[in-house]
């Protein structure tokens, strides 16, 4: 049986891992390559790097981080942040990334997702969606530019459209929950899981292990992404997996 994936996420800027609360208050959490190796040892199923600077010189730094990481860990690696043209994807894949996640550029020009999928395959084309709930309603709006810019696009419709453009996976972040430790937005995640046929990664808001369980069961996510609970050593990936296995979630134990 396919196991559910635990994906530690490393927000990287200037070659360092940081973690903010709703994209503010950045705290230094260490060297990305060392942290990647630690998660590898703990049995993480994949790793995601998000380049939160995404300026052009920042991207060179990121390519280097990916290259050094891929020499030391042999597990799937996703890179996002500032992926705007086919050449950005090629550089990341050549450095050793397996997938790239496309966010703002997909909204600016949806055909880019199609070009990426045709050139490199759907399996490496992840579309990242930053979502905020429309106040008082059971629907969500797509935001871009690190969660600052509303687009007026409905999240569920957007997820469907991105699937039809060749996205192989959706990385779905609740901007309302990100950094709050209140748990994933389960209604949002479930709505997208039910709407598409590709895997959905839940993201934004994990504060404890039960939140991971809820993400897999109540929301039906294929993978759960988390940052703070692992970075600040509240839990190891192994502890999270033992907990989930104990509650009957299919998990890969190492």
């Amino acid at each position: 049986m396919l196991t559910r994936r635990i994906i530690p996420c490393l927000d990287v800027t200037g070659g360092r891992v940081v973690k903010g609360v709703q994209f503010l208050e950045l705290r230094d959490a260490g060297d990305p390559v060392e942290i990647a190796e630690a998660y590898d040892q703990q049995g993480a199923d994949e790793l995601t790097f998000l380049d939160i600077t995404a300026s052009s010189d920042g991207r060179d730094t990121m390519v280097d981080v990916v290259r050094r990481t891929a020499e030391r860990v042999f597990m799937p690696l996703t890179v996002g942040g500032g992926i705007r043209v086919v050449e950005d994807i090629r550089r990341m894949l050549n450095a050793g990334a397996d997938k790239v996640s496309i966010n703002t550029a997909a909204v600016s020009r949806p055909e880019f997702v199609n070009e990426a999928a045709e050139r490199f395959g759907s399996q490496c084309t992840v579309v990242a969606i930053d979502a905020r709930q429309v106040p008082g309603e059971q629907r969500w709006e797509v935001y871009t530019h690190g969660g600052r810019k509303p687009t007026g696009i409905d999240v569920v419709e957007w997820a469907n459209r991105m699937e039809s453009f060749g996205a192989g996976e959706i990385l779905l972040t609740s901007m309302d929950r990100d950094g709050t430790k209140d748990g994933y937005d389960l209604a949002l995640t479930r709505a997208v899981v039910d709407a598409v046929s590709i895997p959905v990664i839940a993201s934004g808001g994990v504060g404890n292990l039960e939140h991971l369980y809820d993400g897999f069961t109540t929301a039906g996510a294929s993978a759960c992404l988390a940052a703070s609970i692992f970075h600040f050593r509240q839990h190891t990936v192994q502890e999270a997996k033992q907990y989930l296995q104990g509650r009957g979630v299919p998990i890969r134990m190492v």
């Binding site: 049986m1 396919l2 196991t3 559910r4 994936r5 199923d45 759907s122 399996q123 192989g168 996976e169 598409v196 046929s197 590709i198 895997p199 959905v200 039906g220 294929s222 993978a223 890969r252």
Partner: peptide, 20 residues
């Protein structure tokens, strides 16, 4: 094939992740 299911949840395609 389209519409594969397991324990009441649909199985996404691509088949992505760790399996035995």
């Amino acid at each position: 094939p389209e519409g594969m299911q397991e324990q009441g949840e649909k199985l996404p395609v691509p088949h992505m992740g760790w399996n035995q």
